[in-house]
Design a protein around this nucleic acid. Structure first.
Lengths: 211, 211
DNA sequence: TGGGGATTTCGAACAGCATTCGAAATCCGT
DNA sequence: ACGGATTTCGAATGCTGTTCGAAATCCCCA
C-alpha cells in the first residue's frame, strides 16, 4: 500500500492538484471527482493513500517542497552575495516572503493547494501529528534564523524567532486575505504588482530587526 | 423563516456555540448533534436558519460582536485618556490585539467559534458575499485608522491601512498558529502569559508607526 | 512460453451526512 | 372555542468517504 511510484497513484495526485487549483471550495473536491479526473475509481485513492485526506496531504507536501526549494535558494543567493559578511537584511526578508507572494499572485501556480491544505488542517486537527509535519514544518524557516542573527546580533534567539514568526503572519495575511488587505488599503495598492507588495512588506518587517 | 427571537432558534445557537467550543474538528459538528444538544431536530436548523452553515455564521456573528465591542471599548479608553492629544501608540496597539490574545488564551472563552468560522469561510468561499460581511468586517478595524493617523501624521492613509493589516496578520499568527509560534521561539516564551505576549506584539508593531 | 503469487483495479455495499417536504402539532388572536 | 399562521417533526433523497471481496493485471521464475 501507499506506493507513490505507481502510475495511477501519480495520476491521482496530479488530478487532485489540478482540482485543488480549479475549485474554489474544498467540499466540491470529492473522491469521485478526483477519480474521474484521473481516470480511476474512488477505491484507488483508498488503496494508494489510505484516505482522501492523506492524498491531499501528499499533494500539499509535494507543492510545499517546491515552494521551500525556491525560498531556500533565494536565501542562499542572498547569503552568498555578501559572504563572508552578513547578508543584506532586505534581501533576506524578500527571500522569506517573496516566493509566497509570487505564487499567490500567479494564477498558474499551485498556490491554492497550500491555501486549501492549511485551512483543511485547521478544520481537522484531530490527527495533529500528521499535519504538523508539514504545516509546522518550520525547519526550513529555521534556516533563516542564523542569518538574521548575524544581521541583528543584539537580538537573542527568542527575539529572532518571534520576529520571524511575526513576519510569517504578515505574509499569510497578505497572501490569504487579499480582500481584507485591499479594503484596508482603500484599493489604492496594486496587489498584483509583486515587487511593489514585496517592497511594502520589507518596509514593514525590516525595522523589526533594526536597532 | 429565520426568526432569531424564537426559543428553539436561540437554543440551537447556544448548542452550536457550545459544540463549536468543545469539538476540535469541524466535521464532528453535525446537524444531528447540534439538534440533540438543543433538544430539537435537524429540520429545525433548516427551518430557522436555512442551513447548518448559516447557523454557524449566525453564531460566529454573535461572538464576533462581543469581541468587537471589547476591542472598541479599549480603543475608546485609550483615546479618552489622552484627549485631546493623540492617544498613546502602544495603548492603541494593545487595544487592537489584546482582546483576541486574551480570548485565544482563555479556555472558557468562545474564541474557538471564530477560529472554526474563519477556517470554514476559507474552505467554502463560494457564497463569498455572505462570509465577507463578517470576516472582512473591517469597519471596526477602520475605527483605528484615524487615531493611528493622528499618532503618525507623516504616514498617508494607505500606509496606515497597510500597517494595520500587517498588525492583524501578526495577531492571527499568534492566536491561530500557537504551535508554530512556540516552536520558532524555542518554547522559551510563556504563551499563556497574556500581558507578556501583548507586550511582545506591541514591541514589534509599534516601530511600524514610528519614524 | 506458460504458470502462479503478488500487486493493483474495480464495483457493489454501507453508514453517515445535509437538506427537502408534506403532514402533524402547536400557538395565538379573535 | 374556533381557525389561520407558525413551528415541529419524521421519512425520504441524493450525496459523501470508506470498506471489502472478487476480478483483473502484472511480473518473476521455471
Amino acid at each position: 500500500m501507499s506506493g507513490r511510484e505507481n502510475v495511477t497513484a501519480k495520476r491521482l495526485m496530479d488530478a487532485c492538484e489540478t482540482l485543488l487549483c480549479e475549485t474554489d471550495t474544498l467540499e466540491d473536491l470529492t473522491t469521485r471527482r478526483i477519480a474521474i479526473q484521473a481516470e480511476a475509481t474512488p477505491s484507488a485513492i483508498a488503496y494508494h493513500f489510505g484516505s482522501q485526506e492523506e492524498l491531499i496531504t501528499a499533494v500539499a507536501e509535494r507543492v510545499y517542497r517546491r515552494l521551500n526549494a525556491e525560498r531556500l535558494s533565494l536565501l542562499q543567493k542572498a547569503v552568498d552575495r555578501r559572504a563572508p559578511a552578513p547578508a543584506d537584511l532586505e534581501e533576506v526578508i524578500a527571500a522569506l516572503v517573496g516566493p509566497s507572494i509570487r505564487w499567490a499572485t500567479d494564477p498558474k501556480s499551485s498556490y491554492p493547494v497550500l491555501a486549501h491544505f492549511t485551512s483543511m488542517a485547521q478544520s481537522h486537527r484531530d490527527d495533529v501529528a500528521h499535519y504538523r509535519r508539514i504545516i509546522d514544518d518550520v525547519e526550513h524557516h529555521r534556516a533563516f534564523i542564523p542569518h538574521l542573527k548575524r544581521i541583528a546580533p543584539w537580538l537573542d534567539e527568542v527575539d529572532i524567532g518571534w520576529r520571524l514568526n511575526c513576519a510569517l503572519g504578515i505574509r499569510s495575511q497578505v497572501t490569504r486575505n487579499r480582500p481584507r488587505t485591499a479594503l484596508l488599503t482603500n484599493y489604492q495598492l496594486d496587489l498584483d504588482n509583486v515587487d511593489l507588495v514585496i517592497g511594502r512588506m520589507v518596509e514593514v518587517i525590516a525595522p523589526m530587526f533594526r536597532r
